[in-house]
């Protein structure tokens, strides 16, 4: 159900290591997109900003709610996907490819490796649903 090549967080971000680099691409899962409903605004950091694992790097807003976007890794933002900020529908339709949010040059690859894989994320979601 969730792309196998990606890693996941408990706060519903996905992360992907660009091949042969120390750059991690970050977005949010289609599960999160569905939960949010109609998205009204996306706030992303500028390139050059430092981000910290488990700290907010931006925010996503529906009409009546705001959620922090949490960074899966520590590092420096090298690129931001301005296209989705201006075209939220694109992001809603394709959160994994065209809907990527930021690229982070990371310091510690272990941080990336320790994230959940697709099946771990899926069972995490099941457990979370069960609690409600």
């Amino acid at each position: 159900m969730f792309p196998n090549e990606l890693k996941y967080t408990k706060t519903h971000e996905w992360a992907k290591m660009e091949e042969n680099t120390d750059v991690v691409v970050v977005g949010i899962t289609d599960h999160a997109v569905k939960q949010l409903g109609d998205i009204a605004f996306l706030e992303l950091p500028e390139a050059g900003n430092k981000v910290k694992k488990d700290s907010p790097f931006g925010a996503i807003e529906s009409i009546k709610a705001v959620f922090d976007l949490t960074s899966p890794v520590t590092g420096e933002v090298i690129e931001t996907n301005q296209q989705i900020v201006d075209n939220l529908e694109l992001f809603e339709k394709d959160p994994y490819k065209q809907g990527w949010m930021i690229k982070i040059k990371i310091e510690n690859k272990d941080e990336f490796e320790s994230l959940m894989n697709a099946s771990a994320y899926e069972s995490f979601l099941k457990k979370e649903e069960g609690e409600h």
Partner: peptide
Amino acid sequence: LQTREQHIRREK
């Protein structure tokens, strides 16, 4: 643009 306001963003 209500997400700026107290009833949604509370202390922020």
